[in-house]
């Protein structure tokens, strides 16, 4: 038996709200009153969940129960435009958060496990520093997806982020491990300073993809605006892992109709300023 809590936003706030308490672990074993009393920070003022949300504890959804994350830690279901709510799902370790609407910045940051499903848009720093778990965004995401905060050497160190729409600048910046996949286009500096891991961009990526990367793989399914002059062309080949990754992404609902599992890629190695051990794979036969 797992907990299934549904919070429905009554009126979106005008000020930003820090919602670090909106993770499944905060809700397990609590009654409606206790959940309503959980703290939020509106601007610099303490408020409660009940000030913004209608709280309902639902019988376990057999559909959710089928997912491993939901069986372990319960399900938190959020409804409404939560684009002013920051830090949703931050530091969650288990369970599942489903958002029917948009979320603000820092969603899923520092996650160590569980699943965050956003059926809308996500703000900046989605999954920043996450070390485990899975994030899926049906819409677009902001800047710094899976990236590091200022002053940190490593960003995301594990888990996966799957974005069906577009993403902003610095996707996967300083990534250390894990997968970031963007179905649409992305801004400048994708995989900037990446240490290891995989970043995949389905649509057009803007300039400086892979700049200052140390190791890892950047997969570009659409030709970018430009490839950095500090990358060297290697060869054309069919990476052995691509059919597996292709199937895995299809399982997450991310299809690339023009790219087959047998696609051929141009390989570039760089950034030569950081040792040249990273690679950019540019899909050659997009159809």
């Amino acid at each position: 038996m797992h907990t299934h809590v549904k919070l429905t936003l009554r009126t979106p706030p005008d000020l930003p709200v820090d919602a670090q308490s909106l993770i499944p672990e905060s809700f397990v074993g609590k009654d409606q009153a206790d959940i309503g009393a959980l703290p939020l920070l509106l601007g610099n003022r303490s408020v409660t969940v009940a000030d913004f949300f209608d709280v309902a504890i639902l019988p376990a959804d057999p559909g959710d129960g089928r997912t491993e994350e939901a069986r372990e830690g319960g399900t938190l279901h959020l409804c409404g435009d939560l684009s002013r709510f920051k830090h949703i799902g931050e530091q969650m370790a288990c369970g599942r958060v489903v958002v029917d609407g948009s979320v603000g910045s820092h969603a899923g940051a520092f996650m160590t496990g569980g699943a965050l499903d956003v059926n809308g848009e996500a703000g900046d720093y989605l999954g920043a520093h996450m070390s485990g778990g899975r994030i899926t965004v049906r819409g677009s995401a902001g800047h710094f997806v899976g990236a590091a905060y200022r002053g940190y050497v490593f960003g995301m160190t594990g888990g996966s982020i799957c974005i069906h729409g577009d993403a902003g600048h610095m996707v996967g910046a300083r990534l250390r491990r894990g997968l970031v996949a963007v179905g649409g286009s992305c801004g400048d500096l994708a995989a900037y300073g990446m240490r290891a891991g995989t970043v995949l961009i389905g649509g057009k990526s803007r300039v400086r993809a892979g700049a200052n990367m140390v190791r890892g793989t950047v997969i570009l399914l659409t030709p970018p605006e430009a490839i950095m002059p500090t990358f060297r062309y290697n060869c054309v080949y069919c990476p052995g892992f691509w059919p597996i990754l292709h199937a895995s992404l299809a399982g997450l609902g991310l299809d690339f109709p023009g790219v087959s599992p047998q696609a051929v890629f141009e390989s570039y190695s760089g950034d030569i300023n950081e040792g040249g051990r990273g690679e950019i794979l540019l899909c050659r036969n997009a159809n």
Partner: peptide
């Protein structure tokens, strides 16, 4: 890009004129 190329030249990395 300018800073990157200057870095590469200072580090003695090979940058081909054709590329």
């Amino acid at each position: 890009e300018i800073a990157s190329v200057l870095r590469a030249l200072l580090r003695g990395e090979r940058l081909e004129e054709e590329a």
